[in-house]
């Protein structure tokens, strides 16, 4: 089974500060880590490889510094690492990012499964996984909490819902985004670390992936961040008192006019 895991380098949430002037994330001096949900996606891919054989390729779009994160992914069991990096990608929103990743994956060409974290902890959009699946025109399941089996190229997965889970069967190739409940990521092994130190990371530019420059980066983005702010809490709050029966009556009286 050939698995691609999309990983993103994000600022360490333990260490995040907002720039008081611009209201944007201050990345200066903040340690960069692998997006925690992507770590679960990587672990699941490595477990699938251990179970079914195959290879795991980690793929990231990001600045050259993201190489450190890709090496860490190799130390945790990935076989190959691909970094898609170009100044032309700067300022990409999820629309432009999925375009770039899709072009890179078309370049890699050969895969049975793509795994992503359910979202990145910096942007929190949860759009890149589904967007990428649309671009590649393959089936997609979000919030996967368990992969049960894979029989005759059909994978049975559990999708975490608010009130339980959905059991789904999905033909491969497909893309899943995973939740943290899916597994406990491993600690890098010594042999993995030694391999990670030596491995050649494949580096692809905009030209390498044959991308249309108009669709990349800020230019290719359909959304612009104008302002980041915490919404003010509005609306009156009331705390009801009395016995449970009295409180229910009071609540009923308050809600009735709203219907």
């Amino acid at each position: 089974m050939k698995i691609i895991v999309c990983v993103k380098q994000v600022p360490d949430a333990k260490d995040v500060r907002l720039d008081p002037k611009t209201n944007t994330l201050s990345r200066e001096g903040v340690q960069a880590i692998m997006n925690p949900y992507d770590r679960h996606a990587l672990e699941e891919a490595v477990r699938l490889k251990e179970q079914h054989g195959g290879t795991v390729t980690v793929l990231s779009m990001g600045p050259p510094q993201a190489e450190a994160m890709l090496r860490e992914a190799v130390s945790c069991g990935a076989d190959e690492a691909v970094l898609v990096s170009d100044r032309a990608f700067a300022g990409a929103d999820t629309w432009a990012t999925t375009y770039t990743l899709a072009m890179a994956i078309k370049k890699i060409d050969d895969f049975d499964l793509i795994l992503c974290g359910k979202q990145a902890i910096d942007g929190d959009t949860a759009q890149v996984g589904p967007g990428l699946a649309e671009r590649l025109d393959i089936p997609f399941v979000a919030y996967v909490r368990k992969i049960n089996n894979c029989i005759a190229n059909i994978m049975q997965v559990e999708r975490l819902m608010d009130d339980g889970y959905d059991l789904l069967e999905v033909p491969l190739p497909a893309l899943f985004t995973v939740v943290k409940e899916i597994n406990e990521p491993r600690i890098p092994s010594l042999k993995g670390k030694m391999r990670a130190k030596k491995i050649d990371i494949t580096k692809l530019t905009a030209v390498d992936i044959e991308a249309d420059l108009e669709q990349l980066g800020l230019k290719g983005s359909t959304t612009q961040v104008v302002k980041v702010f915490s919404p003010e809490l509005k609306g009156a709050r009331a705390i009801l008192a009395g016995t449970a029966d009295e409180q229910v009556t009071q609540l009923y009286d308050k809600l009735l006019p709203l219907l």
């Binding site: 491993r186 600690i187 092994s189 042999k191």
Partner: peptide, 8 residues
């Protein structure tokens, strides 16, 4: 088990 998986 984690120590074993880490090759130690």
């Amino acid at each position: 088990t984690a120590i074993a998986k880490a090759d130690l």
